[in-house]
């Protein structure tokens, strides 16, 4: 998640103070991980250095009273970010694959590895499903995104479970 781009995007609606920006970010995107103030100000400092935002100081105000505005360069940076696809990252499968292979190599029950992981995934999916039921449309869409990703992992777990004998023969050969 590019916090810089998210903050820039929020600034497109008009100049804001840092704390206002943080609140707006947390409301929209920070359900699981609200931003720390330090992170907001360090990100804004970087954006400022790169010419993507500028400061509209208020007379007699301290640093926390600075109002940030997006620049033209910032607007086109957000446009470029939105146009670029995110790199699909199959990171979890790699870790799980390593665990399954190591289980097979070390004489552990690889099915247990898969079962344990399935339970953990389903537990999280249940939480998300419940959260969805009690949430608004934004909650539903955010939870759905997580649910589809977890489902993809689970499909991989099932496929691997079905191919475990084959994999065992191969890694032990």
């Amino acid at each position: 998640m590019s916090i810089g781009h998210a903050l820039l995007g929020l600034l497109e609606g008009g100049p804001r103070h840092g704390y206002d920006l943080k609140r707006s970010y947390d409301e929209r995107f920070g359900q699981d991980r609200p931003l720390a103030y330090g992170q907001v100000y360090s990100t804004l400092a970087r954006l400022l250095k790169n010419g993507l935002v500028e400061v509209e100081s208020e007379p007699g105000a301290g640093p926390e009273r600075k109002k940030y505005a997006i620049t033209d360069a910032g607007v086109s940076d957000v446009g470029g970010w939105l146009a670029r696809p995110e790199k699909p990252e199959p990171y979890l499968q790699s870790t799980l694959y390593t665990k399954v292979v190591l289980a097979l190599l070390t004489g552990h029950d690889a099915n247990d590895v898969l079962d344990t992981q399935r339970s953990a995934h389903l537990r999280l999916m249940r939480d998300l499903t419940r959260r969805k039921a009690g949430g608004d449309l934004a909650d539903q869409l955010i939870c759905d995104h997580a649910l589809f990703h977890l489902e993809a992992d689970l499909r991989w777990l099932e496929l691997t479970a079905a191919r475990l004998q084959q994999l065992a023969a191969q890694v032990r050969a």
Binding site: L122, R126, L128
Partner: peptide, 21 residues
């Protein structure tokens, strides 16, 4: 379907005619 199973309280996995997990 895992997303359907997520509506359950818990799961039992059937494989080769036996219940696991």
């Amino acid at each position: 379907e895992p997303r359907v199973a997520a509506y359950s309280d818990h799961e039992a996995v059937v494989r080769d005619g036996r219940v696991r997990a």
